[in-house]
Simulated assay, not measured.
Amino acid sequence: MELQISDPYFSEKSEIMTALYQVNDPELMVNIIDLGLVYDIDLSIPGQIKVVMTLTSKGCPLGHAIEQGVKNAVNEKFPNANVIVEIVWDPVWTFEEISAAGREQLGF
């Protein structure tokens, strides 16, 4: 996910993304931002932060742990927000989504 400086929520989304760098996929031990799992952060509803993301596979056994990690990380920065994590499967996640930093951490 790339932020646009023209986004009216640029500052808040930057803070959220910084927090999400602390959430690791427990199997790969790489954060969800560098893995390319976060597709969008929606702040259009006051008091609500929706993180639209995917997982590396539909059968991810630790998906709930990742979701809870996202909620915890975002609530740490925005304690009064209602954090919603929406898991989507379209577009399908692929290894091409991994950032250069993520590839380095994985040894690619």
Rank of each mutant, 00 (worst) to 15 (best):
P46Q: 07
I49C: 11
Q48I: 14
D42I: 03
K50D: 07
L37E: 06
L62G: 02
M53A: 06
G63W: 01
P46C: 04
G47E: 02
L37M: 14
S57M: 09
S44K: 10
M53W: 03
Y39G: 14
L37T: 02
C60M: 14
I41C: 05
D40H: 06
D40W: 14
D40E: 11
I41D: 02
T56Y: 07
G36S: 10
V38A: 01
D40L: 05
Q48W: 10
I66D: 01
V51W: 04
L43R: 11
D42G: 10
P46D: 10
P61N: 06
I41Q: 04
L62D: 01
L55K: 09
T54H: 00
K50N: 13
L43W: 03
Q48S: 06
P46S: 15
A65G: 11
K50M: 13
A65D: 13
P61I: 14
G36D: 05
I66N: 00
L37Q: 02
V38T: 06
I45W: 07
T56M: 11
D42V: 07
D40N: 15
G47L: 04
L37V: 08
L55Q: 00
T56P: 01
C60E: 05
L62H: 03
L43D: 05
K58L: 06
Q48D: 12
G36R: 08
D42Y: 11
A65S: 04
P61H: 13
D40C: 10
